[in-house]
Each structure stands twice: as structure tokens, then as C-alpha cells.
Design a protein around this nucleic acid. Structure first.
Lengths: 138, 138
DNA sequence: TCTGGATATTAGACAAAGTCCAGATTGGCG
DNA sequence: CGCCAATCTGGACTTTGTCTAATATCCAGA
């Protein structure tokens, strides 16, 4: 994958390619996530988007993040009981969570192998596998 | 491990062996979790404990569950962004989460192998590895 | 250009999970 | 019995997220 700049113009294209109508607010929110390539909570997204010029409401931030999720533009990471993180990296990967600091980082799934899992219950399909390594200072 | 009955008397012993003062409320809460061998949320624990005679306050339920957690009596399972589950099974195992129904079940870790993980950051130790298989109806 | 309707956004009320605190209860022990 | 520490309690509070009804925006077609 070629490196690209996460300009707002490119965001519009990205949204369109995921079948999302690229409105002003959606572009700002996508830009917040993708230009940072970081895991952000809804709160953080709202803070970032609202330091820039245009104001975006809480409802829109939540609506938009949910929309991005449905359209496969971002992934949800559930590591902290108090808030959900949104991850602009949708390629297969796992997570390393530093419990003390709350820092969350990616582990590329390419070399990780999980074997010996029992068969799924009948009529079920895997929606996703979340592997979280929780670490703390020694 | 021999099968045992999770009587309230046995709960007192269990608590003591984990360095927890076995009060009336704590025994009831432990009993709720261990006699069912199920994953329960704080809400569910409170509901169960309060259908029986003695009333236990919300604060006590939360305090007690946190205490059990610190003392290694239960494990925390974070799969649902809206509530934490407490797991009386502390032996190494993973989880299967049925997204639609919210049903959560155990996967014995004995035969599951996870390989190829990168080394931990310097000065960090693993606190736990959470593997969650999210499934849904086909 | 004007208009209608679909889509998107908004403020703010609301809900649910969890925390916090100051006062009341309990229980063990001398 | 009376004391002290540990525990428990109700209720106010915080935070994350949802809902709703009203408004704004956009665009296609006349």
C-alpha cells in the first residue's frame, strides 16, 4: 500500500469509496482519525474536531463513528470498561494495552498464529477475533 | 480439582483463603457468582443478591466485586462496551461471545496456542492475555 | 432559479454504569 | 459493656452514550 497524505480531499474520496456521503462533519471526523493513525475515543474525536473551526455536535460524532463502523471504515476496540476506542487500522491486527497509562498500540497479525481453537457452535460464523495483551510496568 | 458444593459456609472459607474478611454481604455475592459458575455483570449480581432476604447496596456490590478482583478471586471480562462481566473462573481460558444474544462462554485455554507474538516493550510484564472470539448467527 | 423531499445535523433531555462521600452499622475484643 | 476499625449504606454525582423533535443542508427536477 502506497503511503498517502490524509488530506481532507482524500478523506472525501475515502468516504465515497466506502459508500458514505462525504459531508463536512464526516470529513473532519475521518481526518481526525486517519491523519493521526491512532486509537481515539468518541470524546477525543469530539475534542479534536471542535478545536478546529467548525463545531460538531456530540450526536453527530457518535452517529458518524457508528456509521464508519458499519461501513467498515474503522474498527472498535474494547479494552477499557469506561470507553470504546475507534481504530482507523482495519487490517488484521491485535492490540497491546498498557494498563497503567492506557496506551494502546497495534500488533501486526501477520506473524501471530492462534491454533487449537474448538469448532464454532453450529450456525455461527466468526465476526472477529480480538486478542489483547495487557501489560504493566514490571 | 474435586467438585465441591458452593454452600455459603464454603464461601466463607474461600474468602478467608483469599485474605478477604467474610462478611455477610461478601458471602452472598461470592455465592451468587460461584454457585452459578457464570459470567455476571454488577447489575445481575445486585439483582440476584437482593431477591434473597438481605438487602445489599449498589456501593457494596461494586466495592466487593472490585475487592474480589484485586484478591484474584474473580476475573474481569470486557466484551461489551456497556458493562463489565465478572468471571468466577480464574483458570486460564478464553471467551466466545455471541454478539446478537450477548451470551458469553468459556474456551478452555489448554489446547489453544498463540505463537509469534512480538517481544514486550522493555520493562513491561504481561498482566493477562484476553482472547475473544466474536461470533454471530450465519 | 425555485421548490420539495430526503438526508444530515443539532441541542438538550434522558438513561445506564459506575464512583464517591459522610454518616450509620457491625463485629471482635479487652 | 463499650470501643475501634472495618464495613455498609443511601443518595448525589459523573461519564459515556442514546434519543428525539426541530432545524439545516443538499440536490434533482420543473
Amino acid at each position: 500500500m502506497t503511503r498517502m497524505h490524509y488530506t481532507r480531499d482524500n478523506m472525501a474520496g475515502l468516504l465515497r469509496s466506502h459508500d458514505i456521503n462525504p459531508t463536512h462533519q464526516r470529513i473532519e471526523i475521518a481526518h481526525a482519525l486517519f491523519s493521526r493513525q491512532e486509537h481515539l475515543s468518541a470524546d477525543q474525536v469530539m475534542a479534536i474536531v471542535n478545536t478546529r473551526h467548525s463545531e460538531t455536535s456530540k450526536a453527530t460524532v457518535y452517529n458518524t463513528l457508528k456509521l464508519f463502523l458499519e461501513k467498515g471504515l474503522v474498527r472498535e476496540v474494547i479494552v477499557d470498561p469506561s470507553k470504546v476506542f475507534f481504530d482507523p487500522n482495519t487490517s488484521p491486527h491485535h492490540h497491546l494495552y498498557e494498563v497503567d497509562s492506557g496506551k494502546l498500540s497495534d500488533i501486526d497479525a501477520e506473524h501471530v498464529q492462534i491454533s487449537g481453537l474448538p469448532p464454532l457452535p453450529a450456525g455461527m460464523v466468526t465476526e472477529g477475533i480480538d486478542l489483547i495483551i495487557r501489560v504493566r510496568k514490571a
